[in-house]
Design a protein around this nucleic acid. Sequence first.
DNA 1: TTGGTTACGTGATGTAGATCACAATATTTT
DNA 2: AAAATATTGTGATCTACATCACGTAACCAA
Lengths: 190, 190
Amino acid sequence: MDSKEILQQHIAKTASLTDDQFDYFFSHFKPQSFKKGQTIIGAGDKVDCEYFVISGCLKAFFINDEIKMYILQFAMPTWWTSDYTALYNQTPATINVDCITDVELLCLSNGDREKLCEEFHQVEHFFRWRTNKGYIASQKRLLSFMNNNVKIRYEELLALYPQLYNLVPKHLIAAYLGVSRETLSRLYNP
Amino acid sequence: MDSKEILQQHIAKTASLTDDQFDYFFSHFKPQSFKKGQTIIGAGDKVDCEYFVISGCLKAFFINDEIKMYILQFAMPTWWTSDYTALYNQTPATINVDCITDVELLCLSNGDREKLCEEFHQVEHFFRWRTNKGYIASQKRLLSFMNNNVKIRYEELLALYPQLYNLVPKHLIAAYLGVSRETLSRLYNP
DNA sequence: TTGGTTACGTGATGTAGATCACAATATTTT
DNA sequence: AAAATATTGTGATCTACATCACGTAACCAA
């Protein structure tokens, strides 16, 4: 399945566009490929785009005092990622996004998203629902953070995304859970 | 200023509706008043509505094992609140919402919101932006949780909402910060 | 193959914040 | 005003997790 079909099926779940409308919609996306380890957004950058993941895995993360890394999101196929704070407020990036594996992306500029939302009610509908799901997931994660210890959060994460266990190094999982790699290691090597 | 004007000014910041359109929009909101301490949504309830705060202050919170409380949101005038997970998924509430002070609300049902979003592109636009802001704020809070200790989170909270200091008891602020009331107390009484 | 980087495990020790316990004020309610 | 309840402070102790330190194994690149 090519990237166009992947995006089309993704959108079709929440919005109905005719094939012509989708063709036009799709024409605003720019395909991009990156190698493992490459940086897509670096702290301080101007952020113009958000990214729809076709294949591979990315991490969106924050670096504290040039030392500690906190992962906000692992972005997998059919997920969207960017530094949304920077993107919507037109401020320099504080979040980094880079590639855990080789990736293929579709890139959509902020301006084009807003233009498409204006032109098609259904596109606006789609983005409302996407953000809504993100908001709900974010609230849930926050709650888990306050309520649960590392062990439970780790099990929750693996239950939700079993692929991660083999796909990403453990210290990145620790950075997502907000604990040191040593503590995570001791969880399953007691 | 009456509740209609408050809502109108709030909406006007991100969407343009004619007066007639706004009248129609507003007709779907049901005014409600509650006394301090009353419960608006209790865990297990069916959730039909979201609420726009006209006056007063609410808390949206989660209770763990019938013991510990974690506050997800203090809802102040012109804020929206509900158990959005329950509302969008039509599942029983896991979040409680109740009144810290006497409050006046405007209540909008899930069905009416969706209907209005369909009928008016501008309404859909408004709700996309509202959710978007919520998402960004939620990500920011999550990051602060991972990155900062209680003292810094406390200062951040008061910088953002100075009213809270006098409006709500300290143990609720502790429940928002995710620490014990004792620890919070020791922060400013060293 | 070799040398370098990255990943991972594990002991010893330090610390922020939790928990328990009790006391002192405020604030409601009757 | 008296009684009941909610709010806040503070000491003593406990614990989950961080940090530091060191060792081993896997994976690249030259």
